[in-house]
């Protein structure tokens, strides 16, 4: 044997186990600035990332994982590790949403990746009710800046937490669905899901 063979045959399994343990230990030591995990969904694999303050990023499978994690490392913190427990509540709520059993989200959100006007826009998105839509112009009016239709479009396109902050409910004034971070088909599928599950029950 050579010195570089100082590994055991089950190294891959060992490293997976050690990596999972590292995520836990990092969280316990308050060193896990960004925890992430992936979940399966009807829209494909979703990447979820959270800081201790809340959900910071939801990414679709058409976004490159390395780029998503790279952006989190450079803009939030390089202390990024896979760890499931912090994302369990949002994973559960998203599961309920895709089954048509949930109409709004209760998880805390961290908008570190959206500043200024873009942040204002995505913060008011939950005011667009489940099963309904608003035009980019209507959202611009809601924010008190009717001329900012195009900027509203940009803000929605760069929404760091799609689904949970429902930018898919913002559509073009002519009725066309418009662009979406997860691709236009995903947006159409979400609007169809919400239509099929019916409007929010009266409170």
């Amino acid at each position: 044997m050579s010195l570089t063979d100082l590994g055991l045959p089950d190294d891959d399994a060992t490293l997976r186990r050690l990596s999972a343990r590292l995520g836990q230990a990092a969280a316990e030591a308050d060193l896990l600035d960004v925890a992430y995990r992936t979940i399966d969904s009807p829209l494909g694999t979703l990447l979820l990332a959270a800081t201790p303050r809340g959900l910071v990023r939801v990414a679709f499978s058409i976004e490159a994982t390395d780029e998503v994690l790279g952006e989190l490392a450079s803009r939030v913190s390089p202390r990024v590790l896979e760890d499931r427990p912090r994302l369990d509540p949002v994973a559960r709520e998203l599961g309920e949403y895709f089954e048509g059993r949930r109409r709004s989200f209760d998880v805390p959100v961290d908008l570190s990746l959206a500043a200024g006007f873009r942040r204002e826009v995505v913060e008011l998105l939950p005011r667009i009710a489940y099963g309904s839509t608003a035009s980019y112009r209507q959202v611009a009016e809601m924010i008190g800046n009717p001329g900012a239709t195009r900027a509203v479009g940009t803000a929605c396109a760069r929404n760091p937490v799609p689904l949970v902050l429902p930018c898919h409910r913002v559509v073009r004034a002519d009725g066309a669905t418009g662009a979406y971070r997860g691709g236009p088909e995903a947006k159409i599928a979400l609007l169809a899901l919400e239509k099929a599950s019916g409007p929010a029950p009266a409170v």
């Binding site: 010195l3 590994g7 050690l18 490392a73």
Partner: peptide
Amino acid sequence: MKTPFEALVRTHGATVLRVCRAVAGPD
């Protein structure tokens, strides 16, 4: 710009494990 730490674990985890085994033994 910094690489996400998880990439360090993925890239260098095996080497670090070899070093730890060589110095501290398997247990």
